[in-house]
């Protein structure tokens, strides 16, 4: 098992957001986490990647045999976890190229590998740029500054391609994308799929799952996974909305 989440609970201030999440992800799988607004989807993504705004109050998470929650955000990334942000941050004065060079070499150092030289780095960049149809001029500019919504999301997938994570968590990657941008992003993600890595797609809408086809769909509601199923579940949600899930949860 790559990732095992066991009874995970977390809160912000006094407010409990995750109230006992259980989930297992194997290499090669794609899991979709769906749910109405405020159900805890983005919190789950944040807690897994080490955002410090949340306090974990119970449960544990094992990632490739390691206790994930005891690791810093950067060490989780170095172990192979990647978060594609719902709102990628604009950082004036730092180019994507410089950012990726720094990140890649810090990850390699952690793994006891040699830093990439300029030529190897450039070659890798060129190859990954094609994958997400992103232009080099964009990557030389300040990170995400003045990028369109689509460019920001493509840049996220470009970074994912560069870092080759074992587990990618896509947080509402479809939000704010038109259909063409969505297709490019999804194609990039699909090309990066291998039997060795896994993907968690966090999304409110079914739309993205037409392109990134999940093996499992989980519905999160009030901080718990209240229903799991195959791809059909996503289609059902698309058709019927979330109210029946809420009603079912209330009946339990």
């Amino acid at each position: 098992m790559m990732l095992t989440i066991n009874n995970l609970q977390a809160r912000v201030g006094d407010k409990a957001i995750l109230r006992g999440i259980n989930l297992s992800v194997k290499a090669g799988e794609v899991h979709a986490i769906m749910g109405p607004n405020g159900s805890g989807k983005s919190t789950l993504a944040s807690v897994l990647t080490g955002r410090e705004d949340y306090e974990v109050t119970g449960g544990d998470v094992t990632f490739n045999g390691k206790d994930l929650l005891s690791l810093s955000a950067e060490d989780r990334a170095r172990e192979g976890i990647f978060l594609a942000f719902q709102y990628p941050v604009e950082i004036p004065g730092v180019s994507t190229v410089n950012f990726m060079k720094t990140a890649l070499n810090q990850i390699r150092e952690y793994r006891g590998e040699q830093a990439l030289d300029a030529v190897a780095f450039l070659a890798r960049m060129k190859e990954k740029m094609k994958l997400v149809e992103i232009d080099q001029s964009l990557l030389s500019r300040s990170l995400n500054e003045g990028f369109s919504g689509g460019e920001k999301k493509r840049n996220e997938i470009f970074q994912m391609a560069m870092l080759e994570p074992k587990l990618a968590i896509l947080d509402e990657t479809d939000s704010g994308l038109d259909i063409d941008a969505l297709r490019i992003v999804a194609t990039g993600v699909n090309k990066l799929r291998t039997p060795q890595n896994a993907t968690i797609v966090v999304t409110h809408y079914q739309r993205l799952l037409d392109y990134i086809v999940p093996d499992f769909v989980h519905v999160l509601y009030q901080g718990r996974i209240v229903k799991s199923g195959g791809r059909d579940l996503a289609l059902q949600l698309e058709e019927k909305g979330y109210d029946w899930i809420k009603a079912e949860a209330a009946a339990v």
């Binding site: 941050v89 890649l104 952690y110």
Partner: peptide
């Protein structure tokens, strides 16, 4: 957090910013 989530240490992230 954005920088650290890509594997960059806290100190290095600070100095980059």
């Amino acid at each position: 957090f954005y920088l650290r989530s890509r594997g960059i240490s806290e100190g290095k992230a600070k100095s980059l910013l």
